[in-house]
Design a protein around this nucleic acid. Structure first.
Length: 757
DNA sequence: TCCTCATAACTTTTT
DNA sequence: GTTATGAGGA
C-alpha cells in the first residue's frame, strides 16, 4: 500500500491530527464550515491506504442519504472503485439491510414492510381500538409520539408500562402493547423499529453480533449531535472491543431533539470511552467574518453550551443585511427581487442562492413571488413525493405483493382504484378473517380457492363483492409470482396495468379520476411514471431482491436526497433540511417571535420553566446563518398571515442578539429601505425593489420610480416583473389613463430621474 | 358503491 | 388557507 501523498496536504494542524488519529475512540468537535467532510473522507482514505484496511471493513453513518452519496463520491476519488465496498449510509438504511440479511435469526421475515408515519398512524388507530382508548381523548399522533420516544431509548411496551408516570403514559403503554402485536402480525417495522430491532438483534444474538464486530474494524458517525440513544448504542455494538469509533459533531448544531436526538450522547461518549481523544476543528473556511460573527453572537446567548473559539481568515465581506417589510408578500417580493438583482448584476447565479424558513407553510408566498417574477426555483420538501396519494397507493400495492401480511397496505389498496369492494364488504371480510384467526389475505385466498373449485363462497358476502375480492386475491398472487421474475421497472408497468392504475388515471372519457387535492389526473400519472423511472435503478439486480431494494429505498429517502446541485435555480428549503448544505447567498425569512423561535417552543418552555426549546430554535437559526458563504439576509415581516387572518408581529429575539456593527446600516445597504429590527412603525415600512442595473436593452425601473411615456404621460411604476428576455412593467399613470401593463422593450418609456415616491 | 359538497379543526421541524 | 371527516345524492 502506498500513501496517497495529498491525503494530508492542505489540512490545518487540527484536521491533520484528526485524520492521523486512527486507533481508539475519537471525538471530533467540528464547527460549521470547518472542513468536516474533508476530514472524514481523508481519514477513511488514510485508514485504507496507510493501514491497509479493506474498505469492506469500514462503516460510516451519515445523517441523510445525500450526505452518504457525497461522501461515497469523494471517497471514490480518494480510494478508487473499492470505495463501493464501504458501508456508508444512514443508520436507518444500514439497519434495513442488517434486518433483511440477518433478521430471520430473531424471527423477522425478510420481506417485512417498513411503515412510514402515515402507516404508523393507521396501525396506532387499530391499536387504540383494541386497547379501547377513545381517540378523542388522545390523538393517535400524541400516543405515537410517546411510543416513538420510548423506542428511541430502547424501551418496549413492558418497559414503558413499568415506568409510566401518569395516566396518559399508562394508556400509551397499553396501546403500545397492541401496536407491537399488530406490527408482528403485519410483518412490519417502523422507522424506530429499524434501529431498536437491530440493537436487539446484535445484543441478543451473539453469532450475529460477532460476525459484524469481526467485520467492522472502524466505525464512524457523522452528525453525532443528532443521533439518538438507539443509534449510539448501535454504533457502540458495531465498534465492539476494538473501540475504533470516531464520532463527529457540533453541539451547537443539534436541531433534532424533537426526534429524540440526544446531545448527551456526546457526554456519554466521553464517559463510555474514558481514553477518548477530543479534537476541535475551529477554523471556518466557509463564511465571511461578518457572517460568522453574527452567527456567533446569536448562539452565544445559549446558556447550555460550551464556548468555542471559531475563527475565519476569510475577511469581513459585505455586512449582514437585516430588512423589514410590511407583510409576508412584500417579504417574498423583496427577496426574489434581490435575487433577481444579484443575478442581473452578475454577482451570483440563482443556483447560488437559498431562501430558508422555519415552517413549510412559509414557502407558499415565496413560490408565488417566484412565479410572478418568472424566477426559476426549486422547492425542497413540502409534500414529499412518496407521500403523494397515487405514489403511496402504488407503493402500498407493491408492498402488499411483497408482503401479503401487510394489512395496512392491503386496506389502503383493496379498493383503490375502485374495484367494487366497499367499506361494508371490507368489514365483513376482516370480521370473518378475525373469527377464523387468519390474516385477511389468507381469508381472501380462501374465497378465491372456493371459486376456483366451484364451491360456494365460505363467507356471507354479496356475490359481486365476493367476486371482486377473489379477483383481487388472484391479482396479488399473480403479481407475487411476477415479482421474483421481472425487474422492478417492468413489475411496476404490470402493476399499473393489472391493478387498473393506468385506466384510472388516463381515463379518456373524462370522468374525474380523483381530483381530491386539486391535482390533475395527468400529473398523478406522470408521478407514477417517474416512480417507474426510479425503479430502473434496481433493474440490474437479481429480480429476487429487486423489489425489496426498491421498497427499501422508497421508504427511506429524504427530500434533500433528491436535491441536485447542478441545476441553476433558486433553492427554497426549511432550516432543518438546510443542515449540511452551503450557499454563497442565504436569505432567512420570518425572523419573528412565534415563527423563529416557533411559538410551540416558547409555549413548551413556559410550561416546563426551561429554555431548552428556545435554545434549540436558536441553534436552528445558527445553523441557517452559518450556511451562508458571502451574503446573509435576515428578513422579517411586520404583519404575517396566520391561519387566514393576519396580525402584527414582534421582531425575533435572535435579531436583537446581533451586534449593530456587522449589520448593514440603512445608507450602506443597497436596498433602499432597511430598518433596524426594533423599529416597527406600521405602514411606513415599504418594500422597494432594488434598482435595476443595465441589462442588454433598457434598464428596468424600480418600483416606486416615476417614468414618462410618450403618449400616456408621467406615471409611477407599481410592479416590474422579469419575463424571459424582457420586463413587464405595470405603471399607474396620472389622470384618466390609469394602470397600464407595458413591455419594457417596446414601450416608449423613459425614467424621470431623481424622483422617488 | 362511489362521488360531491360542506364543515370542522388545525399547522414545527423528518429518518 | 389547508386538509380530514361526514352526510347525502347519483
Amino acid at each position: 500500500m502506498t500513501i496517497q501523498p495529498d491525503l494530508l496536504q492542505g489540512l490545518n494542524p487540527a484536521q491533520r491530527e484528526a485524520v492521523e488519529t486512527v486507533d481508539g475512540p475519537l471525538l471530533i468537535v467540528a464547527g460549521p464550515g470547518s472542513g468536516k467532510t474533508r476530514v472524514i473522507t481523508h481519514r477513511i482514505a488514510h485508514i485504507v491506504h496507510q493501514y491497509g484496511v479493506h474498505p469492506y471493513r469500514i462503516m460510516a453513518a451519515t445523517f441523510t442519504n445525500k450526505a452518504a452519496r457525497e461522501m461515497q463520491d469523494r471517497l471514490q476519488r480518494l480510494v478508487g472503485t473499492r470505495a463501493e465496498l464501504l458501508s456508508v449510509g444512514t443508520f436507518h438504511a444500514f439497519c434495513a439491510r442488517l434486518l433483511r440479511r440477518d433478521g430471520e435469526a430473531m424471527g423477522l421475515n425478510r420481506n417485512y414492510s417498513i411503515f412510514d408515519t402515515d402507516d404508523q398512524v393507521s396501525a396506532i388507530k387499530q391499536a387504540m381500538e383494541l386497547a379501547e382508548v377513545d381517540p378523542k381523548g388522545h390523538t393517535p399522533r400524541a400516543v405515537l409520539g410517546v411510543i416513538s420516544r420510548a423506542k428511541n431509548v430502547l424501551t418496549d411496551s413492558r418497559g414503558l408500562a413499568s415506568r409510566a408516570e401518569n395516566y396518559f403514559e399508562e394508556t400509551a403503554a397499553r396501546v403500545y402493547h397492541h401496536y407491537e402485536e399488530i406490527m408482528v402480525r403485519n410483518n412490519a417495522v417502523d422507522f424506530d423499529d429499524l434501529l431498536m430491532r437491530s440493537v436487539q438483534l446484535l445484543e441478543e444474538y451473539r453469532a450475529v453480533r460477532e460476525q459484524y464486530q469481526e467485520r467492522f474494524v472502524h466505525v464512524m458517525v457523522d452528525e453525532f449531535q443528532d443521533t439518538n440513544v438507539a443509534q449510539y448504542r448501535l454504533a457502540r455494538l458495531l465498534a465492539g472491543d476494538r473501540q475504533n469509533i470516531c464520532v463527529v459533531g457540533d453541539p451547537d448544531q443539534s436541531i433534532y431533539s424533537w426526534r429524540s436526538a440526544d446531545i448527551r450522547n456526546i457526554l456519554s461518549f466521553q464517559r463510555d470511552y474514558p481514553s477518548c481523544k477530543t479534537i476541535s476543528l475551529e477554523q471556518n473556511y466557509r463564511s465571511t467574518s461578518n457572517i460568522l460573527d453574527a452567527a456567533q453572537s446569536v448562539i452565544s446567548n445559549n446558556r447550555q453550551r460550551l464556548d468555542k473559539g471559531l475563527f475565519t481568515e476569510n475577511g469581513d465581506g459585505v455586512p449582514v443585511y437585516a430588512h423589514e417589510t410590511y407583510n409576508e408578500e412584500d417579504e417574498a417580493g423583496y427577496v426574489i427581487g434581490e435575487v433577481d438583482r444579484l443575478v442581473r448584476e452578475r454577482e451570483t447565479k440563482a443556483g447560488d442562492c437559498a431562501i430558508m424558513y422555519r415552517v413549510n407553510a412559509q414557502s407558499r408566498a415565496l413560490e408565488e413571488a417566484c412565479l410572478r417574477r418568472g424566477m426559476k426555483y426549486r422547492l425542497v420538501g413540502g409534500v414529499r413525493f412518496y407521500q403523494r396519494k397515487e405514489v403511496k397507493d402504488l407503493m402500498c400495492f407493491l408492498r402488499l405483493v411483497h408482503n401479503p401480511l401487510d394489512e395496512v397496505s392491503l386496506m389502503r389498496v383493496i379498493n383503490v382504484p375502485p374495484r367494487g369492494i366497499g367499506a361494508k364488504s371490507v368489514s365483513l371480510l376482516t370480521g370473518w378473517a378475525r373469527d377464523e384467526g387468519v390474516p385477511t389475505y389468507t381469508a381472501m385466498q380462501r374465497i378465491l380457492g372456493a371459486r376456483r373449485e366451484g364451491q360456494p363462497c365460505p363467507v356471507n358476502l354479496p356475490r359481486r363483492a365476493a367476486n371482486s375480492i377473489a379477483d383481487f386475491a388472484n391479482l396479488v398472487e399473480e403479481m407475487a409470482n411476477l415479482s421474483v421474475q421481472l425487474p422492478p421497472s417492468e413489475l411496476i408497468g404490470e402493476a399499473l396495468e393489472l391493478a387498473g392504475f393506468r385506466q384510472y388515471y388516463q381515463n379518456a372519457d373524462g370522468r374525474a379520476a380523483d381530483r381530491s387535492d386539486g391535482q390533475r389526473p395527468e400529473e398523478r400519472w406522470e408521478n407514477l411514471m417517474e416512480m417507474r423511472e426510479t425503479a430502473r435503478e434496481f433493474d440490474a439486480e437479481d429480480p429476487a431482491d429487486g423489489l425489496a431494494s426498491l421498497l427499501e429505498r422508497i421508504s427511506l429517502v429524504a427530500e434533500v436526497d433528491n436535491y441536485e446541485e447542478s441545476e441553476d435555480s433558486l433553492t427554497l428549503i426549511t432550516l432543518h433540511q438546510a443542515k449540511g448544505l452551503e450557499f454563497p447567498v442565504v436569505f432567512i425569512v420570518g425572523l419573528e417571535e412565534g415563527i423563529l423561535p416557533h411559538y410551540r417552543s416558547i409555549e413548551t418552555d413556559a410550561q416546563s420553566g426551561t429554555e431548552a426549546q428556545v435554545e434549540e430554535e436558536r441553534r436552528l437559526c445558527y445553523v441557517g446563518m452559518t450556511r451562508a458563504q458571502q451574503r446573509l439576509y435576515l428578513l422579517r415581516a411586520f404583519r404575517r398571515g396566520f391561519m387566514g387572518s393576519s396580525g402584527p408581529t414582534n421582531a425575533s429575539r435572535f435579531l436583537q442578539e446581533i451586534p449593530e456593527d456587522v449589520l448593514a446600516s440603512p445608507e450602506q445597504s443597497r436596498p433602499a429601505v432597511v430598518s433596524t429590527p426594533r423599529s416597527t412603525r406600521q405602514g411606513t415600512v415599504q418594500t422597494r425593489m432594488p434598482d435595476a442595473p443595465a441589462p442588454p436593452a433598457k434598464p428596468a425601473p424600480g418600483i416606486g420610480e416615476t417614468v414618462r411615456h410618450s403618449s400616456f404621460g408621467e406615471g409611477v411604476v407599481i410592479d416590474c416583473i422579469a419575463i424571459p428576455g424582457d420586463h413587464e412593467v405595470t405603471v399607474h399613470f396620472a389622470g384618466s389613463v390609469g394602470i397600464k401593463r407595458l413591455l419594457l422593450s417596446y414601450a416608449p418609456l423613459e425614467k424621470v430621474p431623481g424622483d422617488i415616491l
